[in-house]
């Protein structure tokens, strides 16, 4: 799959940044706009009253810690690749992947906790305050799955010795995206904490 046109790296690159990296930043901006829409809708809607107050699942604090840790291991993987430490690179990638899965499981348990407290996504007894929580975590979770898929691609290429100090683009993109997903969750968590 030749994702980049043949023109690249050729005569010109006026941006001083790899076009794919630039593209990734643009995609990140569009995701940010999506969540900006959700969170401002949340605030506007909340201000109008008839808003069910409930406690955030405690496990979400744990998922926050997990995803923060995964950002650390992702960064370590990146640095290991830069230093051509292939064994450490793989270890860190596996760890990141594992932590990513754990995060999703923790979020899932968070949802079960909500259901246990009679906070539902839809249905007759649901209130937008609960539905919003499901939407925010669900859409974030969806993006985390895309991050995991990309991470899997990087793992496969590291097994083929294609990730090293002279071939950093893949893991750089992955690291940027992963940190973004972590940062996004941190923002959502703080947002929810402050607005509960």
């Amino acid at each position: 799959m030749d994702m980049v046109a043949k023109s690249l790296g050729e005569e010109n690159n006026t941006g001083g940044i790899h076009p794919l990296k630039f593209t990734l930043w643009l995609i990140i901006i569009s995701i940010i706009m999506m969540f900006a829409a959700f969170t401002s809708a949340y605030l506007v809607r909340r201000a109008e009253g008839n808003w069910l107050e409930f406690d955030l699942p405690n496990i979400m604090l744990i998922s926050t810690v997990i995803i923060a840790l995964s950002s650390v291991t992702m960064q370590l993987a990146h640095n290991a690749a830069a230093n051509d430490n292939i064994a450490k690179l793989r270890l860190m990638l596996y760890l990141t992947f594992g932590l990513g899965i754990m995060f999703l499981i923790a979020q899932w348990n968070g949802w079960s906790e909500l259901v246990g407290n009679n906070v539902y996504f839809g249905g007759v007894t649901s209130n937008p305050s609960g539905s919003f929580l499901y939407v925010l975590t669900g859409v974030h979770g969806f993006h985390l799955v895309t991050g995991l898929i990309y991470l899997a691609i990087v793992i496969v290429s590291s097994l083929r010795y294609k990730v090293h100090s002279k071939n950093m683009l893949r893991i750089q993109l992955c690291t940027i995206y992963w940190h973004f997903l972590g940062g996004l969750w941190l923002y959502l968590y703080l947002f929810l904490r402050l607005n509960h």
Binding site: I29, S30, M33, F38, F121, G122, G123, P128, S131, F132
Partner: peptide
């Protein structure tokens, strides 16, 4: 487009939930 279309996407997603999943956004 980059800044505004994702917002329509969010709006449409909530509408889909209202239509098919019983939410009340």
């Amino acid at each position: 487009g980059l800044l505004s279309f994702p917002v329509l996407f969010s709006a449409a997603l909530l509408l889909i939930f209202d239509r098919s999943f019983g939410t009340s956004f």
